[in-house]
Structures are given as structure tokens and as C-alpha cells.
Design a protein around this nucleic acid. Structure first.
Lengths: 230, 230
DNA sequence: TCAAAAAAGAGAGCACTGCTCTTGCAGTGG
DNA sequence: CCACTGCAAGAGCAGTGCTCTCTTTTTTGA
């Protein structure tokens, strides 16, 4: 990441990056299922066994790509948010949602890798959690600012959920009311439900004008967390 | 499906069923990625090439499993709906949502197969569309009945979405107002966003009391389509 | 009834995969 | 200078999807 100590370490980082680049290319072209270590090695002019010096297994390569994908998506969300910084919170919410959708449409296989079925054995390593949180943090930031400025409409939470709601608010979104924490979390999952359905073909024959449909649905999500359109 | 004409046709159906059963077992145990034709054949005591008489490719076997999974999920939804037939529409809505979640938790790999990333090349054949619609039809039925009985709260749709909303209502849910059609479709996608996030580990470290959280979120979805709790 | 046709299974084989192991080469640090 | 370590190469193993050919069995139609 910083200055490499020796020429050796530098070369290692370059090769590692080259492997990831080529793997990303194959991922984008064919999908995770067809990503082959041997093909990556072949394309890089090295023998397949050499690649195992850099990634001990195919799953490790995939994990690296997953983290990069989360970061790429998170950056897209943050950029969109920064670009809309002057707009009202509800508008910024929609802008971020649209950025997520746009990124997903532009990188379908990467999106499938991170929000589709978990491809490797089963559990994503905990390394993936921080980059995965970036989109959520942007959304939380919007809601928090709106709350601090003028408060939010709150949807009451049933008594049976109140303790969990308080825990969620305290641990994940300190400073926000527990009802909002619950609504936020639900909206976050629902956002990716909308994106996933569009991307994975579930809207085929159902929604035609998907962009407008999404914009409206994202606005409704904003409404659900208590944001109001001016 | 009906009476088999000859002993041959009968045998063929039995073998086909046995292949699907064994494949389903392997799918449930290891996931779609590790489902292997050769392993299925081995387990059935036949040679791998013989299996190609029944399914021309691995993708065809997967497609058959996909259809079965959609039907199984649809049946779970229909059963839950039938069991709650005396309850108010909003309650039935939640019951169906909970049935979807329950089925998904009980059949994670099958759920991943149908609502996760599309595993084969890319596009699911159109054969999968009717079974895939069963859950949606149950939900539409609930909403339609509620609408016919007492009407529904409607969330206005922006002008830019109005034509698409009308088209969706006319083609997919005749008799329902276009605003409701839009809200229904969004809720449908959002439901699977909630289920998918829980199933694919996105709620790890975020939501602990997932059952209660889901019940509340499902109730909010019902609210979003205009259903009211008595 | 009996031969032709269709269907099914068996087996070998091809090209590919992830991964391991051993061997040889080339930079690195004492 | 020389031992050490990191790296690459190659062979090889077990597994995969899929195709092709050959044999056996069942169905069919004249």
C-alpha cells in the first residue's frame, strides 16, 4: 500500500495487482462461475502453479475481488452523495440509491458476487464486513443529518421489537431513535431487493420502465425512514 | 404425470425423478456450485453418460431444480395463505411473507438457486416464469380482495411513472388501481431483499432478533401497499 | 410374427478444472 | 561469498462436463 521496501516486494505487489485485474476482467466478462485460475495465469503468461504463491486458493482470489467490489460500490455511493451534497436529504437518499443501481447495472457480475448467493463454501470472511458497510454508512449519514436538522417522522415499533430496536440504534446508529434504526435497516435491505430483482431478471415481463420505477421506489424507501420531500 | 403408456415410459419417469431427487439432495447439502452430474450418476449406480439421456446438460438439470424450487416455495406460500384465510388481509400478507422466509431458511441453497445470482450462462428460460409467479399471485390475491372489500390507501405515483403504472396494473393486476400495482411490485421485490439479506449473511452483526424484525418489516410492507391492520 | 427402429446403458476419451509436489533458478541478507 | 528464501516451472492427481461409439433391450409396424 505504501512505499515498498525492496524491489522484490514491489514486484510482488505488481503481480498481485495484475492477477486481480485479469481476474476482474474475466469476472466481468463471464461471471464468477467461469473464473478460472488457470485461465488467469495463462493470460498473464505464467504457469498456474505460480499463481498459488499469491492467492492460496481460488476462494481467496474471489474474496479479494469481493472486497474490491464492495469498495467500488461504496465509492460510487459516496461520490454520488458528495455530488448531491446541497440537495435535501430525501433527494440525496434517492441519488445514492440510484448510484447503487447504476453501479449494479454497470457491474452485474460483481454485484452478483457480493449480493447474490455466497459463491465459496458459505461464509464470507469478516474482512468483507467493513467495505460492505460503506453504502449503509452513507445512508445512515443522510438520515442522521436530516434527523439532527429537523427531526424525522417516526413509525412506531411493536413492543416485542423494542429491545432489539434499541440495541440496533445504540450499536449501529448512535444518536438516531430506535424506530428510525429499524426502518433504516429494512430500507437498506429492501433497496438491494429492488436492485437484485431488476438485475437478476425477476422484473422481466413485469417492470418495463425500470429507471422511473426505481426512482419512485427509492423515494418511497426514503419516505419509509422518515425523510420528507420539500 | 398421468398413466404411463408402457413400461418404458414409466421407467423413464422413475429414473428422471430419481435423478432429480438425488440432485436435490446434493444441492441441499453442498449448494449448486458443487452439484456434479457424475456424483449424481455415481450415487444412482449408473454411469455418467447415461444421465445425459435424461438431462442433456447440467444446466437443464439445474433448470428442472429451479422450477421445482419455485413450485415448492409457491406451494408454501399458498399453504400459509390458505391456513390464514380467516384473518384480515394485512395479517394474511404477513403470514405469507413469513412463509416465504421460513421456506428460505429451510432451503437456503434452493433459495440461492432461484433468487441468488443466476448460475448458468445467464438467462433463465421462460419455462421458469409461471412457477416463479406463484408467490406474487398469492400476494396480489390478498391485495385484490382487500381492495374489493374496502378499498385501499393509495400512495400517489409521480406523473412520469403514471403510464408505466397503468400498464403494469392492466397487464398484471387487472382490477387494481395503478398506484397499488406499483406499490405491490416494489413490496414484492423488497420482501425478497429482506429474506435474501438475512439468508446471505448481510444481517450478521446488524440484526439479531431476525424473526421479530422480519415480522415488523413485513407488516410495514403491507402498510406500503395500502393494507391496514384492524 | 418378426425384422426394423428407437431407446437406453456402458465405456473410453477429450479438454478442462483446482490444487499439490518436486525441482531448478535468481535475487537478498548476513 | 554463500546460505537462504521467494519465485517460477513442470509434472501429476483427482475431479469435472460432455461426446462418441458400441452393445443390449424394448417398442413398433408391416
Amino acid at each position: 500500500m505504501t512505499t515498498p521496501q525492496g524491489a522484490r516486494a514491489r514486484a510482488r505487489m505488481e503481480v498481485t495487482a495484475a492477477i486481480k485485474d485479469e481476474a476482474r476482467r474475466q469476472l466481468a466478462a463471464e461471471g464468477a462461475a467461469k473464473l478460472s485460475l488457470r485461465a488467469v495465469a495463462r493470460e498473464l503468461g505464467m504457469v498456474s502453479s505460480a499463481l498459488y504463491r499469491y492467492f492460496p486458493s481460488r476462494d481467496d482470489l474471489l474474496t479479494a475481488l469481493i472486497i474490491d467490489a464492495y469498495d467500488s460500490l461504496g465509492e460510487a455511493a459516496e461520490t454520488a452523495h458528495a455530488a448531491a451534497v446541497d440537495a435535501a436529504p430525501a433527494q440525496r437518499w434517492v441519488a445514492v440509491c440510484e448510484a447503487v443501481r447504476g453501479w449494479a447495472l454497470a457491474h452485474p457480475h460483481e454485484y452478483a458476487l457480493i449480493y447474490g448467493s455466497p459463491v465459496p463454501g458459505y461464509s464470507a470472511p469478516d474482512t468483507t464486513i467493513p467495505p460492505a458497510a460503506r453504502v449503509a454508512l452513507v445512508l445512515i449519514g443522510i438520515v442522521r443529518e436530516a434527523f439532527d436538522r429537523r427531526g424525522l417522522a417516526r413509525t412506531p415499533v411493536p413492543a416485542e421489537l423494542a429491545p432489539e430496536a434499541r440495541r440496533m440504534a445504540a450499536e449501529l446508529m448512535p444518536g438516531l431513535p430506535s424506530e428510525v434504526a429499524v426502518a433504516m435497516t429494512a430500507a437498506w435491505a429492501q433497496l438491494f431487493g429492488l436492485v437484485g430483482f431488476e438485475l437478476f431478471g425477476q422484473f422481466k415481463g413485469v417492470v418495463e420502465d425500470r429507471e422511473r420505477f426505481f426512482r419512485h421506489a427509492a423515494a418511497q424507501l426514503a419516505h419509509g425512514v422518515g425523510l420528507v420531500f420539500p
